[in-house]
Amino acid sequence: MNRFFHKILSGGLVLSLALLIAFQVNADTLEDQIADISGELMCPVCEGQSVAESNAQLARDMRAIVKTKLLEGHSKEEIIDYFVSSYGETILASPPPRGFSAILWLLPVLSVLIGAAIILRTIRSYRVEEKK
């Protein structure tokens, strides 16, 4: 019975992974794309809200620009670069992982890896000690 379950389990996992890869299509609507891009830009006149969230006039205008540029066929990167070139990097809701800001992105990953290594080492060292 257990073997049967195992087969179902592993079969299901493989199947679902295959489906996951096969159906990885991006059918984002225009509204989704606008929300996605403007979510990475901060509204310059409101504290702590992104362009996607803010109801301020400027944020609405910026969303309109995003929409126009998307319809003109610009990519997400191009549109974000456009805003960075006119407002500077402060417009970004999170800094890109370059220069000093690389620390911001690397440290969380490093902390998890180092922590995991410490835990595994601790457990292993106990086991080795026991065998002796």
């Binding site: 979510g39 809701a93 999170s94 000093f100």
Partner: peptide, 24 residues
């Protein structure tokens, strides 16, 4: 880190940045 990073960035590089939802 994300919360205090804007302060650190300003102190070390003089650059004003924000750390918001995309990072978190």
């Amino acid at each position: 880190l994300g919360t205090i990073f804007p302060v650190l960035s300003e102190a070390f590089t003089g650059k004003n940045i924000l750390v918001g939802p995309p990072y978190f």
